[in-house]
């Protein structure tokens, strides 16, 4: 048989396989949808108000490729003398892709000596991580880092 049009394209083999794969994908997604860039902005405003954010002074160290999104090392260093008159008050990590954009924030002070913090975070996929530092003079500074999160070989459901 050649060239006979498929009368039921919706039920072609490819369509059915695609549908099956789609259902599996849906089942694997977390309950709510991912946070969008808007949600990240809202989380930043909630923590710091609607002040201007300068780019710079915040350095992020993250692996360019994370082999699993459940535990990604993040090191943050903010350029500050950390004296009683000029120090970092707060550092916050935001995700443009996680269900909750606000990952963590840290409160420092002149007794910190050094504005350097490390932790491990969860990332719901490849994204550009965003960190904001609030200085003692009230100014806000930000830094970003791009991370590719790879997918595991075997899917365990």
């Amino acid at each position: 048989m050649i060239g006979k049009p498929d009368k039921h394209p919706d039920f072609s083999r490819r369509g059915v396989l695609g549908l099956g794969a789609g259902l599996v994908s849906v089942a694997l997604l977390p309950l709510p949808a991912f946070a969008a860039e808007d949600d990240m902005r809202a989380a930043q405003v909630k923590l710091f108000g609607d002040r201007p954010i300068n780019v710079g002074r915040v350095n992020l160290k993250v692996p360019p490729i994370a082999e699993n999104g459940y535990s990604v090392p993040v090191s943050i260093n903010v350029d500050s003398p950390m004296t009683s008159g000029d120090y970092v008050k707060r550092i916050a990590i935001f995700s443009p892709r996680n269900p909750v954009s606000h990952i963590a924030d840290f409160e420092l002070g002149p007794r910190s000596g050094k504005a350097e913090v490390s932790t491990r975070v969860r990332l719901g996929g490849s994204q550009i991580l965003n960190v904001i530092a609030e200085m003692s003079d009230g100014s806000l500074w930000s830094g970003t880092a791009e991370i590719t999160v790879t997918l595991a070989a075997c899917i365990i459901m």
Partner: peptide
């Protein structure tokens, strides 16, 4: 806290990895 005075605070959301790890600094007084 260091000798009763708060020197560092953190607030965590669900995006912090299991078995939370933290590294930070302070001046030895």
């Amino acid at each position: 806290t260091y000798d009763g005075e708060v020197i560092f605070k953190a607030s965590f959301g669900p995006g912090v990895a299991a078995n939370p790890f933290l590294s930070f600094h302070t001046v030895a007084t």
